[in-house]
């Protein structure tokens, strides 16, 4: 198999695009697709400072590599969830930090065990919550903190086409119209929260993994122990079965959705309309100062992770 562009031996065939590419032109292809998504969805420009959420996995490290290669001003942050199984968090942190150092990118670390004396597993056990729901809430909060600490204009995450298509599939299966109204790869800055973007939405997981291999990116090859058997993986499996029969389906599915998202947004305008700051129900959390809409003025992160301070505040009231 020869590279469509230069005729040298190809390392990958991209059936959805009907091309085979050599390492050099494959790297160029991936970087161009990312640049195209950034422009198409108006994610950011060269003057913006971008905070990349790095996990040590293929997607986030590839994203960091691509954005630096494209000449963007980038910083990174890593959230240490303290997952001890198979040294998952320890290894992920080492890989994330080593790659940031290699690229000369500043990387802030937010460690749950260091901040609160326990990781996500222990916290989930004690609170009888699922690790994944606790993890989601914790990561969303710390992303906002990282953007503030890094003085970044935008937070970029490594969500790819497969992630977006699987989430869309799941929301359609449930006809969850409120979620369908907000599946766009750009979340605008609002109420003190930073703009959030997903620049890898034109690329499949396979393309990103291949990019990481070709670029020699040392990423964590195994999965978060909590994702095993997750329903999300089942949706991905079904979409990949369809993709194998009909290459390009995932791309048409998700891009068609972003072109038609307004149909869902009509039903749920509150999910997408930018409100005036004065109309906003948001106020600073009484403990950490981050914006919160909760009635008692304490954000969900502080309510969970800082119970002693919550008690103190409640006692004073």
């Amino acid at each position: 198999m020869k590279c469509r562009i230069c005729g040298k031996p190809a390392v990958i065939k991209l059936r959805a695009h009907n091309i085979a590419l050599c390492p050099e032109h494959f790297v160029e292809f991936v970087q161009k697709q990312t640049a195209k998504a950034i422009k198409h969805y108006r994610m950011f420009d060269k003057d913006d400072h971008i905070a990349v959420a790095v996990s040590g996995g293929k997607d986030s490290l590839a994203l960091l590599d691509i954005l630096t290669e494209l000449g963007y001003k980038v910083s990174a942050f890593y959230i240490d969830l303290g997952i001890k199984h198979m040294d998952y968090s320890k290894t992920s942190k080492e890989k994330a930090q080593a790659f940031c150092e290699k690229k000369g990118v500043k990387c802030l670390v937010y460690s749950l065990p260091e901040m609160f004396g326990m990781g996500i597993d222990e916290a989930a056990r004690k609170s009888r919550r699922t690790p994944c729901s606790l993890c989601g809430m914790t990561k969303r909060y710390l992303m906002n903190v990282a953007a503030r600490d890094l003085e970044a204009d935008v937070v970029a995450t490594g969500h790819n086409l497969d992630d977006q298509a699987a989430a869309l599939f799941a929301n359609l299966m449930r006809w969850d119209v409120s979620y369908l109204a907000k599946g766009y790869p750009v979340l605008p800055a609002e109420h003190g929260f930073p703009k959030k973007v997903k620049p890898l939405v034109f690329l499949t997981e396979r393309e990103i993994a291949a990019y990481a291999i070709v670029r020699g990116i040392d990423y964590v090859r195994y999965e978060c122990p909590h994702s095993e058997g997750a329903r999300f993986l089942v949706y991905k499996e079904h979409l990949n079965a369809i993709e194998n029969m009909s290459p390009g389906t995932k791309r048409r599915f998700y891009q068609g959705y972003t072109e038609n998202i307004w149909r869902f947004q009509i039903e749920f305008p509150e999910q997408c309309e930018k409100k005036d700051e004065e109309e906003s129900p948001m106020k600073p959390c009484k403990i950490c100062g981050m914006p919160t809409a909760s009635e008692d003025g304490i954000c969900s992160f502080c309510r969970f992770w800082r119970p002693e301070e919550v008690k103190k505040i409640k006692g004073q009231e």
Binding site: K58, E205, A209, R221, L233, K236, N240
Partner: peptide, 8 residues
Amino acid sequence: VVSVVSGG
């Protein structure tokens, strides 16, 4: 054989 699917 490198698996490319991650849990999200």
